[in-house]
Simulated scan of single mutants.
Amino acid sequence: MSPRTGRPKADNPKNYIIKARFDEETYRAVTDYCKKHNITRTDAIRLGLKLLLSEEEK
């Protein structure tokens, strides 16, 4: 039998989906930020949440 093929298991799997609705201004701001920094919207939102949570710990 051959070894399994496909994607390897992720070290930190993303098992949860959260949907959010944005107004036009916020959507454009996030999209522009992502283009400028060459990151995905998902990564930008994750970074923003990490910043908020780290602020709360202080």
Rank of each mutant, 00 (worst) to 15 (best):
C34S: 00
D11A: 15
L49H: 02
T40S: 15
Y33M: 03
L51N: 08
L47I: 14
H37A: 05
Y16E: 07
L53S: 09
R28H: 10
D43Q: 13
I18Q: 04
K19R: 08
A29T: 09
K58G: 06
L47S: 12
E57H: 06
D43W: 01
I18K: 06
R28M: 11
I45E: 00
I39S: 01
K14D: 12
V30F: 04
N12R: 15
K19G: 10
Y27R: 10
Y27L: 09
R28F: 07
K35F: 03
E57P: 01
K9R: 15
R4D: 11
D11K: 14
L53T: 08
T26H: 03
E24C: 05
R41K: 14
A44M: 08
L51C: 07
T40W: 01
I18L: 08
R46W: 00
N15I: 09
S2G: 13
D32H: 06
M1A: 12
V30N: 00
L49V: 14
N12I: 11
V30Q: 03
A20F: 04
E55M: 11
T5D: 09
I17N: 05
K14L: 13
E25V: 13
P8R: 14
N15D: 13
Y16F: 08
E56K: 14
H37K: 13
K9P: 04
V30I: 15
E56Q: 13
A29L: 11
K35M: 05
A10F: 12
A20R: 03
G6V: 02
A44E: 03
K14F: 02
G6M: 01
R46V: 03
F22M: 12
I17T: 08
K14E: 15
A44I: 01
K50I: 10
L47C: 08
T5K: 10
S2M: 07
A10V: 04
I17Q: 09
K9H: 11
S54T: 09
A44R: 04
R28N: 11
R21A: 06
P3N: 15
K14I: 06
R46F: 01
E25C: 05
R7P: 04
T5F: 06
P8M: 01
G6Q: 04
K35C: 02
K36Y: 06
A10Y: 09
E24L: 09
R28Y: 09
P13M: 03
P8C: 02
K50D: 10
D43R: 12
V30D: 00
P3Q: 15
A10M: 15
E55P: 00
P3F: 12
E55Q: 12
